[in-house]
C-alpha cells in the first residue's frame, strides 16, 4: 500500500485534511470528558484519606501529563522542522505551544486547589508543582521568542533550537528540583498492583484520553489558521470558499 505521506506535508493539502480530521478528535473529546467526569464525580468512591477533595485529580493528573508530553511532542516537531526544513512541522510546533502552556497552567491551578485542603496552603514548594511552574516558563519562553521575531522562518528555527535545548533541560530540571525537595506524596498511578479503586483508574484514563483528543483538535484548528496566515499570498488560499465568502 503506497500512501504518499509527503503529499500531506505540504501546507496546502494538509489544510484540507486537517479540516476533515477536526471533528474526529473534537467530538470524542467532548464525549470522553462527559463520561470521564461522570465516573469521576458520581461513580468513584470517596477516598478514605483525602475525602471528596481528591476528585480534582481527574483533571489535575491528565493536565500535568499532557503538559509535559506536549512539550516533548512540540520539541520533536520543532526539531523535524529545523533539520528537514519542513514548514508544516514548525507550524505544528507553534500550534501546540499554547495548548501545552494551558495544560501547564491548569495543572498549577488545580494543584493549588488540591493543596489548600490537603496541605493547608495554596502553594507548596514541592518538586512536581515547582517543575510544572518551570515548564510553564519554558512554554512562555518559546511563545515569546517566536512572537518577537518578525521573519517567520527565523522565528521557527530560533524557537525550535530553544525547544530542543529546553527538552534536554527538562529532565535535569526535574531531577534537580526533586533533589531540592521531595515533599510530594509518591506516584498515585501504579501499574503493578492497585492502590486505587477501579472506577478511579477508569475515570482518570478516560479524562486523559479526552485531554489528548482535545489537544489534537486544538492543534489542528490552530495550525489551519497559521497555514492561512503564512500562505495568504498564495493562489490556493485566495481560491478557498471560506476566504472568499
Amino acid at each position: 500500500m503506497a500512501i504518499n505521506w509527503f503529499k500531506y506535508s505540504a501546507p496546502s493539502t494538509f489544510y484540507g485534511l486537517a479540516g476533515k480530521m477536526i471533528p474526529w478528535f473534537a467530538i470524542p473529546s467532548v464525549v470522553l470528558f462527559a463520561v470521564g467526569l461522570y465516573i469521576g464525580f458520581f461513580v468513584a468512591p470517596v477516598d478514605a484519606v483525602q475525602g471528596e477533595a481528591y476528585r480534582i485529580i481527574f483533571i489535575h493528573v491528565p493536565a500535568s501529563i499532557l503538559s509535559m508530553f506536549l512539550y516533548l511532542v512540540m520539541a520533536g516537531y520543532a526539531a523535524l522542522g529545523l533539520i528537514f526544513n519542513t514548514r508544516l512541522s514548525s507550524m505544528m510546533a507553534t500550534a501546540l505551544a499554547p495548548t501545552g502552556a494551558m495544560f501547564a497552567f491548569i495543572s498549577l491551578w488545580t494543584g493549588a486547589l488540591w493543596g489548600k485542603p490537603m496541605w493547608g496552603a495554596w502553594w507548596v514548594w514541592d518538586a512536581r508543582l515547582t517543575s510544572e511552574l518551570i515548564l510553564l516558563f519554558l512554554y512562555f519562553g518559546f511563545i515569546a521568542l517566536h512572537a518577537s521575531i518578525d521573519d517567520p522562518r527565523r522565528a521557527d528555527r530560533a524557537a525550535a533550537l530553544l525547544a530542543i535545548v529546553g527538552s534536554v533541560n527538562v529532565p535535569i530540571i526535574y531531577f534537580s528540583v526533586k533533589w531540592w525537595n521531595t515533599l510530594h506524596q509518591g506516584s498515585t498511578i501504579k501499574f503493578t498492583g492497585t492502590s486505587m479503586h477501579v472506577a478511579m483508574q477508569e475515570a482518570m484514563f478516560i479524562t486523559l484520553l479526552a485531554c489528548w483528543f482535545y489537544a489534537v483538535a486544538m492543534a489542528l484548528i490552530r495550525v489551519r489558521s497559521i497555514i492561512l496566515e503564512r500562505e495568504r499570498n498564495n493562489l490556493w488560499v485566495s481560491e478557498l470558499k471560506e476566504v472568499n465568502s
Partner: peptide, 10 residues
C-alpha cells in the same frame, strides 16, 4: 532573561 533563567535553575 525569560529564556535563560529557567535553564539556570539546576
Amino acid at each position: 532573561s525569560l529564556l535563560v533563567l529557567p535553564l539556570c535553575i539546576p
